[in-house]
Design a binder for these strands. Sequence first.
DNA 1: CTTTTTTCTTGATCTGCTTCATTTTTACTG
DNA 2: CAGTAAAAATGAAGCAGATCAAGAAAAAAG
Lengths: 194, 194
Amino acid sequence: MSKAQLLQYVRSFVSLTNEEAEQFAAPFEEVHVKKRQFIVQPNFTSRHRAFVVKGAFRSYAVHDGQEHTLQFAIENWWVSDFNSYIYQHPATLFVVALEDSILLQIEHAKEQELKKANHKFETFFRIMAEKGLAFEHRRIIFNLCHSAEARYENFILNFPNFIQRVPQYALASYLGMTTEFLSRIRNKKAHRRS
Amino acid sequence: MSKAQLLQYVRSFVSLTNEEAEQFAAPFEEVHVKKRQFIVQPNFTSRHRAFVVKGAFRSYAVHDGQEHTLQFAIENWWVSDFNSYIYQHPATLFVVALEDSILLQIEHAKEQELKKANHKFETFFRIMAEKGLAFEHRRIIFNLCHSAEARYENFILNFPNFIQRVPQYALASYLGMTTEFLSRIRNKKAHRRS
DNA sequence: CTTTTTTCTTGATCTGCTTCATTTTTACTG
DNA sequence: CAGTAAAAATGAAGCAGATCAAGAAAAAAG
């Protein structure tokens, strides 16, 4: 069952008794999402935090007709419009499935109950947020320090498994460049190799 | 006393009894820092998380001789090299005082004890991390979507009180542009107004 | 104050990356 | 598996923002 996967993930951060595990998993519901289906859209409040059991997602904003990717998520990552979710404000992002996917999602109110009910659950979400924040700090600094080409190389190095599953235009917009420019970088690289 | 300021801040997120407040504040120590003094340097592990009681700080990386600012912090903000602090790895950032400042700092191990000792303290640090993460998400998306000029305008709008306390070259490097270009933006704007 | 250092400004030139337009390739869909 | 839609590649031209060099202003130090 897919909840086993979630619990294995959670237990890699906090130890849980079997009762606690059951209590933690209970409010999560499994959702199947088809490729190209949206799970979050601007102006609608993101009511769930979702754990990716299988598949891939992308969250992005649209500005002046251009898409700008905030995040990708594959197995064992979380997705949502985080600002919308934690403040329960209308979303500004789209979150879309890049493949047919399976999620385990929890409602905002249920998550609050979990955190209140057990110190360990609170700890788990604290760790998730801290890791996320540390990750984004690294990303921001790297983006400030490096060229488009270096950002692409760095992505390949750190997320080789994302490369094949993420469309190139989406990756370009995640890395802060146009899809044309990323194409040129890849082309240049391919020619260097031969 | 400066701990009253910290506790007022903490209590704006979680309710604390007087005993709890005392317990929370106990491991923090007050540190006075002179302008231009560093509290974090690359290769040294950041042993403390620091709450700014008075003054201003900047965290930044140096790459190819260029400085790139990750964060500013004034009264009631926290500073550290967050990656270094939470993972207790060597830092990659500098953190420097922009003014003569007063900090309340807590050691990493002491923070772990606090979080273990009281569910509310854990909740507090969870909220800090979540707010921080949400903030950086907004920043990343905004940076991806907007021009240098728009990023500057947005900063003025959101952090008017930082403008007078932060040197322009540091702001430029926070916003991902050169100090020369920021100067031109400001100049252009000034001329538009007359 | 006066000197020195740091920060900010301004101009000239250059380039990394974008934009636009078109073609080729790949992936879906009936 | 044919037809259509989506994604990626390629070329030419343009521009936002960088770089370099020098001077002006402001702040810190003596």
